[in-house]
Computed example of a mutant assay.
Amino acid sequence: MPQLLWLVTGYSTGFGAEFSKQILQGGDKASATARKVDSLNELKGPGAAVLQLDVTAPIIELKAKIEAAVGIYGRVDVLVSNAGYVQLGAVEDLGDNLVKTFVAETASLGYIRTLYIHPGHFRTEVTKHEKHTAILERKDSEKYQPMYDRMASFADQLHGSQQGDVRKAVELTLDLVQGEGKMEGREIPSQMWMGSDGYAVVKAKCEEVLEVLGEWEEAIKGTKFEGLEGKAS
């Protein structure tokens, strides 16, 4: 297929680093971003363009960064919206920071195709002790301390033992985008789940929903207006 031009946010570790590596190895071009541009120096040799970008910056700054990214190669074919950070805690403690975890839907524009990846637990630095400890210490209330302690303990136990292989997940994602490998001959889905643990959780939830629908079908459908029996239900 034609060479694609990628923009990968949050390069420095985990999925972002693996995306940039495989994109370049496959012959495509990439612009990689991170909050600290020094962490991108190793990409300059392999041929990637590098940009400093903080996705929580004001919108006017983000627009300028996007224009700069497009200007490097003249276009961006694929955006990997990978940048993020660990967000743990109760809503009361997170406050305005909670808003930063949400993104806008773009598929409705028609000319932009979106693919949502829902990963299970993958072996990255996201559960590293230093990351979640610093966050859980910046809380405003004490009433959730037992919950925070359990979350920290879970992250410590999980770190380094996650079932998911980042390299394999990135390979599958590239296949989905490029229509090659495991994707060949299939229609690109709007969303994809990755990881055996993620598969098990989603499958169990779907089966639970179907069971409830089956048990309550008559009652659920019975909430419509009277006199609509002849119309689609």
Results as ranks from 00 to 15, higher is better:
157 Q>M: 11
150 R>H: 08
165 D>C: 13
89 G>K: 00
202 V>L: 11
183 M>H: 06
57 A>D: 04
197 D>C: 13
148 Y>V: 03
181 G>Y: 02
21 K>M: 06
23 I>L: 00
78 V>I: 14
133 T>N: 09
230 G>L: 00
86 V>I: 13
45 G>C: 03
111 Y>F: 11
122 F>M: 11
92 E>W: 02
146 P>W: 02
207 E>M: 12
167 R>M: 03
128 K>S: 02
51 L>G: 04
161 S>Y: 04
152 A>Y: 08
16 G>K: 05
222 G>T: 05
20 S>W: 00
182 K>L: 10
133 T>R: 15
182 K>R: 12
151 M>P: 06
181 G>K: 14
106 T>S: 03
220 I>Q: 11
87 Q>L: 15
149 D>Q: 15
209 V>S: 04
133 T>P: 02
221 K>F: 09
216 W>V: 01
122 F>V: 12
21 K>A: 09
177 V>C: 07
228 L>P: 00
230 G>K: 00
154 F>C: 01
62 L>K: 14
228 L>Q: 12
61 E>G: 10
152 A>V: 11
82 N>H: 11
79 L>D: 00
221 K>T: 06
197 D>Y: 07
210 L>K: 15
201 V>I: 14
24 L>D: 02
20 S>F: 00
24 L>M: 04
106 T>Y: 02
112 I>E: 01
50 V>T: 14
34 A>F: 01
192 M>S: 00
110 G>H: 13
104 A>F: 05
181 G>Q: 10
11 Y>A: 07
135 I>P: 00
65 K>S: 11
202 V>T: 12
63 K>I: 02
30 A>Y: 01
151 M>R: 14
21 K>L: 04
156 D>M: 05
74 G>S: 06
2 P>V: 09
131 K>N: 15
206 C>E: 07
201 V>M: 12
158 L>K: 15
162 Q>C: 08
113 R>S: 14
34 A>H: 03
227 G>E: 03
129 H>G: 01
227 G>A: 04
35 R>Y: 08
190 S>G: 10
134 A>P: 07
39 S>F: 08
55 V>K: 14
45 G>F: 07
18 E>T: 12
160 G>S: 02
49 A>I: 02
98 L>S: 09
177 V>K: 01
164 G>S: 13
37 V>K: 15
139 K>C: 04
147 M>K: 13
146 P>C: 02
122 F>Y: 15
34 A>Y: 02
21 K>R: 15
203 K>D: 05
161 S>E: 04
174 L>W: 00
96 D>S: 15
49 A>D: 04
114 T>R: 04
20 S>A: 14
159 H>L: 07
61 E>A: 11
218 E>K: 15
66 I>V: 15
156 D>W: 04
153 S>P: 07
143 K>Y: 07
202 V>W: 08
232 A>Q: 14
24 L>I: 15
10 G>S: 05
56 T>Q: 01
114 T>C: 05
123 R>Y: 10
89 G>E: 00
31 S>K: 01
115 L>M: 08
7 L>M: 05
53 L>H: 10
72 I>D: 00
109 L>T: 13
28 D>R: 10
206 C>D: 06
102 F>W: 03
20 S>E: 02
105 E>H: 06
225 F>G: 04
67 E>S: 13
